[in-house]
Each structure stands twice: as structure tokens, then as C-alpha cells.
Design a protein around this nucleic acid. Structure first.
Lengths: 155, 155
DNA sequence: TCAATTCACTACGATCTTCGTAGTGATCAT
DNA sequence: ATGATCACTACGAAGATCGTAGTGAATTGA
């Protein structure tokens, strides 16, 4: 991304300068969908980011106001990354990307039933995503995940 | 983007592999918002892409089934790029990016009134975007632009 | 008809970014 | 005290992008 910054006031360009590299949205995805919050958790993702690149991305996402870092008081080695309000605002973008990919990737790992659920109840599901991630939960992993909420409501 | 392809079935990753570099979505934006369709038109964008990179992006977007190329019968030098149905599917993603950026960039060039119009009439506006671009029009430029349609309806 | 222009695109060296592996220092568990 | 684990840094190799300068084919204007 050597492209000169601020050379255009186009909003699509602004977004791409903030998170439009090949890795930033994968970090955000790890937080939103899988409840990952630490360096080593991000490092262990399927896509195999290298530590120096991850470090640079965490810095730039923090600088852009998308992530907030904090040290765990119970273990001061541990640094935790959470989405800010601005970062939570990226959820609709990710959901649209997931929907597009699920429709066009024959080998997609996205469960068709989940994609349909999100597509057909978008405002409601986006609200659930937002609320859940805001309080530290995730879409698929954990006690209070969105998937668990939906499952509980289905019965 | 040296990242190994196909190493994950995550739909966010699939999308990013297809159009998640810093330039692809700017090409799509040029088509959708400004009605650009040729190499030199893309080259003249504010963000100053270099011709070799543009050439590579047009190839990869065509390979990904997002763009379709055709030679102008009236001027056989001219190569025209249009969005395929799959490419039209990227419109909701771009609209969400634009909405996020307009909300977080103090210097955004996006007209607030337009962003509000799209936000508050999203299904209707997305349908207009899609229909208009499909028949060769654009959001802001040209006789049949979405902006012109909205202006006509406002009177 | 023929030179000048315009079209999409390639060539290429310099520079920047990413990759992949191997550390480093601080903190924690035993 | 020792070893493990934490977030990261270092660094050379490989790859991508930048910016400028072409190239050949098609079209236009004289």
C-alpha cells in the first residue's frame, strides 16, 4: 500500500486506506466471528499471517481507531485487542462480503442455513452481532455467542 | 498478496482473495459511481494507479468473473470493461464501505444528503444502483444516472 | 495517403511490502 | 531457579508496486 494517502476524498478510498489490505479484515473477522483477542490467537489463523505483518496491522488498526489495546491485569504479559465502536461499524461490511462469497464460492465453508438466516433477518442479526461483540462475545464461539442465542430461541 | 490461496474456506477470506487488494474495489467504484469503462479512464483516477498494476488488476478481476471485457465494434482499439452479475453483487459491499467512511472521515467528499438517502432507503436504492449499472449507467454520471433519477422523482 | 494521435498495454529498475524463520525480553507457573 | 509462554522484533529472500518510458495496432485529420 504505497499509494499516496489522502489524495482523494472518495469514501470508498478512505475505507480501503484504513482496512483495505489483505489482512486487516481477517483480524476483524477473528474478533467478530471467533472471539479471538490476542496476538497468538490471530497468529494461529488458517491464513498464516507472519508475526511482523500482524504486528504492523494491529498497530495500523489501532491507529485508525478500529481496535483498542489493553493489558490483561491478571496476566501482564497478555495484550488484549477489542473492537472500538468504529470497529464494530465494520460488521455490516464483513457480513456483505461473507454473503457475496458464500454465493460465489462453490467450496465455501459458510453454512448455507446461517447465510440465509442473516440475509433474511439482516437488521435483527446485525443488532445481535453488534451487541454480542460489544460485550466481548462472538458470533460462533463461546457461551453467549450469537449462534447460541439463535439456537436457544429456536427451541 | 503472496498469501497462499485456497488455504481456508472462510467466506471473508474468499472475498478478500478475489477483490481485497488496495486497487480492485477502486476499479469497481469507477464503474459503478462514475461510469468509467476503459483502461485510460481507470488510469486517470485520483488515486494514480500505475498502468502495469491496473493491467494486472483488470486481468484478475476478469479471471474472477467480476469484470467482462469486450472490444468496441466502432473503434477496435477500445476495450470496454463491464461488471458481470457477480460484479454487480459487490455493490452492497461498496455501499457499506462508503457509509462507514462517510461516518468516520471528517474530510469525506461524500455528500451527507446522499449518504442519508441511501441509508434510509437501502433496498430501494440498491435496486436502482443495480438496475442502472446493469444497463450501462452509473450512480453519479450520465443521463440515466441514479442521481438523475432521484432528482427527477424529487420534483 | 500518410503523418500524427489515440488506444490498450508492456518493460523495467527502484523502492516498498510481505514471507518465513529465528530470536528477544518480560512475565508467569512450578 | 528453571522452564514455559506472552507479545513482539530482526532480517534476508521473495514478491508486489511505483513511475516513467516505450510498443504496436487502429483511427483521425490533412
Amino acid at each position: 500500500m504505497k499509494r499516496a494517502s489522502g489524495k482523494s476524498t472518495c469514501p470508498v478510498n478512505f475505507g480501503l486506506e484504513a482496512f483495505g489490505d489483505p489482512w486487516s479484515l481477517l483480524v476483524v473477522r477473528d474478533v467478530v466471528y471467533f472471539g479471538k483477542h490476542t496476538f497468538n490467537e490471530f497468529l494461529a489463523s488458517d491464513e498464516a499471517i507472519s508475526p511482523s505483518v500482524l504486528s504492523a496491522r494491529l498497530d495500523s488498526l489501532t491507529d485508525a481507531g478500529i481496535l483498542r489495546r489493553s493489558t490483561d491485569p491478571a496476566d501482564r504479559r497478555r495484550v488484549r485487542y477489542d473492537l472500538t465502536e468504529r470497529g464494530l461499524g465494520l460488521i455490516p461490511i464483513m457480513v456483505e462480503i461473507a454473503e457475496w462469497s458464500a454465493a460465489h464460492d462453490p467450496d465455501t465453508g459458510a453454512p448455507a442455513v446461517w447465510i440465509a438466516l442473516v440475509r433474511d433477518n439482516k437488521p435483527d442479526m446485525l443488532r445481535r452481532y453488534n451487541d454480542t461483540v460489544r460485550r466481548g462475545g462472538s458470533v460462533f464461539v463461546g457461551e453467549d455467542s450469537v449462534a447460541a442465542q439463535v439456537e436457544a430461541a429456536r427451541v
